[in-house]
């Protein structure tokens, strides 16, 4: 099968899973993070359900020489616990708590409530672009001084 079709199927299944599980609802996700309020444990069941097929997939992966529809495995290899990992994850959690949204549900919601989620999606891509281009901008500024 063509790689693009495999990817589209994977994305669509992912989006379907998010919508079916209730994770497309920012209030429900915030409810999971709301330990001291009306706590909603649903997200824990979603995570548990998602880890099962993936744990099996990693075992199968160990017996494959190459993926089924691509020439090679291209997977993260770093094991370094560094500052960017920690700081980035803390900032992500802050935004996640404020909004109840993370990248998957935000993009999935474009297919359900596009107008409501649009401000988040635009801001998210601006945030990603800031991460990419901010260092270059500050370096250029420093170099010109």
């Amino acid at each position: 099968m063509k790689p693009i079709v495999v990817s589209l199927v994977s994305g669509a299944l992912f989006g379907a899973g998010l919508a079916f599980s209730g994770m497309a609802d920012p209030a429900r996700v915030q409810g999971f993070l709301d330990l001291f309020g009306n706590w909603d444990p649903t997200l824990a069941f979603v995570m548990g359900g998602a880890l099962i097929p993936m744990a099996i997939a990693w075992i199968i992966k160990g017996r494959l020489h190459a993926p089924l529809a691509a020439p090679v495995f291209d997977l993260p290899t770093s094991t370094k616990l560094d500052r960017p990992l920690a700081l980035g994850s803390l900032l992500f959690g802050l935004g996640w708590g404020i909004s109840g949204l993370c990248p998957g549900p935000a993009l999935a919601d474009l297919g359900v409530v596009p107008l409501a989620v649009m401000p988040f999606v635009v801001a998210m891509f601006v945030g990603m672009a800031l991460h990419r281009f901010l260092p270059q901008l500050t370096q250029q500024k420093g170099a010109s001084q």
């Binding site: 790689p3 599980s21 209730g22 979603v46 359900g49 998602a50 997939a57």
Partner: peptide, 22 residues
């Protein structure tokens, strides 16, 4: 619903890993 939706998400990620190696 959460668990079933979670299985779908895990299956989607498994397809990406075993199909495309990503």
């Amino acid at each position: 619903e959460g668990f079933i939706g979670g299985l779908l998400i895990g299956l989607a990620a498994a397809i990406m890993l075993l199909g495309l190696g990503r």
